[in-house]
Design a protein around this nucleic acid. Sequence first.
DNA 1: GTTGAGTGCAACCAAAGGTTGCGAAAGGTT
DNA 2: AACCTTTCGCAACCTTTGGTTGCACTCAAC
Lengths: 116, 116
Amino acid sequence: MSVVVDDELWSAIGDPIRRTMIDLLLADGPGTATSLSRRLPVTRQAVSKHLAVLDRVGLIHAEPAGRERHYQVDEAQLARAVAQLSAVGSTWDARLRRIKRIAEAIERTRTNDEGD
Amino acid sequence: MSVVVDDELWSAIGDPIRRTMIDLLLADGPGTATSLSRRLPVTRQAVSKHLAVLDRVGLIHAEPAGRERHYQVDEAQLARAVAQLSAVGSTWDARLRRIKRIAEAIERTRTNDEGD
DNA sequence: GTTGAGTGCAACCAAAGGTTGCGAAAGGTT
DNA sequence: AACCTTTCGCAACCTTTGGTTGCACTCAAC
């Protein structure tokens, strides 16, 4: 019945800061906790925790470079996440359409049976 | 740059329990806190809090019926939420495609310049 | 009126997101 | 080599959020 989604993956992209982080990594290429925190309204440590969450679900992965850690989006995993978004969306969309269709059918029946 | 989404709306559907609740309301029609809690792994009070959240962002609305409160999905608002899901999804999708295209272009250039 | 189902409110707990503070490691400068 | 700066990770702490239990209230039905 209900749409099957990976809750871990979904809740990873459920956070607005994490969504923006993914946006930034996609738009500007690989980045570090420090570079991301400069473009976000939270501290580096908060960003670091978010990076850990995204890393844990595999949406991004880190590449140590000297004293820095460059994070970058895992394209395949993000594609999976996108697929889940559209899956939930289209399921709800389909249900909305079905409900509307049924409602219209009932309305038609009522109008025919009882006149106006 | 980043996709404009209503954070309130998004975080409302970000919770797995709330997403399932919407699923149930769509599939079975209007329901109460008690009826929903019977089909969910949490207590009625937890469901009640989630209903309050969904109500606050307008995704559902309640209709008092005797001693019960029947909640039902606000179709227009849910349609808005679905639109946002697909907006974020298609933005990421587009960026992934762009990155892939650029990567391929670079690969082609490299192969042409340096031979094999 | 009493009993039962459905609600709402309050107190309490645990996990998540955020902050500050500090110490360690890598890179650049003198 | 010694020093300073940048970046990072860890620990302590606070607040919000999702969850629970317990209790009092309302409405329907007997």
